[in-house]
Amino acid sequence: MSIIEVQSLRKDYSTAAALRGVDLVIEKGQWVSIIGPSGSGKTTLLNIIGGLDHPTDGKVFVKGTDINALSEDELSVFRRENIGFVFQQSHLIPYLDATENVMLAQYFHSLPDRKEAEEALKRVGLGHRLTHRPSQLSGGEQQRVCIARALINNPSILLADEPTGNLDRTNTRNVLELLRRLHQEEHFTVVMVTHDPYVTEWAERVIKMEDGRIITDESVSG
């Protein structure tokens, strides 16, 4: 069974339709990039896959579970055990330091474990920034904390929404290289939404969206 299966997904907002029938199958361990202009529905699709939003119509199976059938609380539990998120804005808690921000994810999953959190930060190259507040970190470092936080509970899926949107080219490159390394080590599935063609170069499969529909879907060899 594929890890993500989306069947004729529709999402209507009061003003316009964001998704107009999307079908998509993603295999385990794949790195998929979804690219499209602003308003193409790519973020909506990602949110629905991650259970942050509900579709108007259609079905989403994640690891074989019909996530629309889950209650809000069951969805939370499903998220904490299976999905890691990275957003464009880092969404770090400003009054907690880097380690504690990672520990928050541990707390909601099960138990906070400082040693493990520090270990994870070292792996993303932030061993020297453990007790820094988010405001004391650069944009690239913040995103790396977010990656550590997203992966701390060993999710099988990483959903990233414009993770490099606020970064310059060098930082973008660093973050993506880090992600590639971790992806190769831990074999989680990556679904990354972007509007930057440069970011898609890292992907194994690029899906182009426009106007709530998938236009092209091509695998990149290499």
């Binding site: 999953h109 099960s110 138990l111 474990d113 060993n154």
Partner: peptide, 9 residues
């Protein structure tokens, strides 16, 4: 590690 934590919880 996440599984271990979950078990403890």
């Amino acid at each position: 590690p996440a599984q271990r934590r979950k078990y403890k919880r």
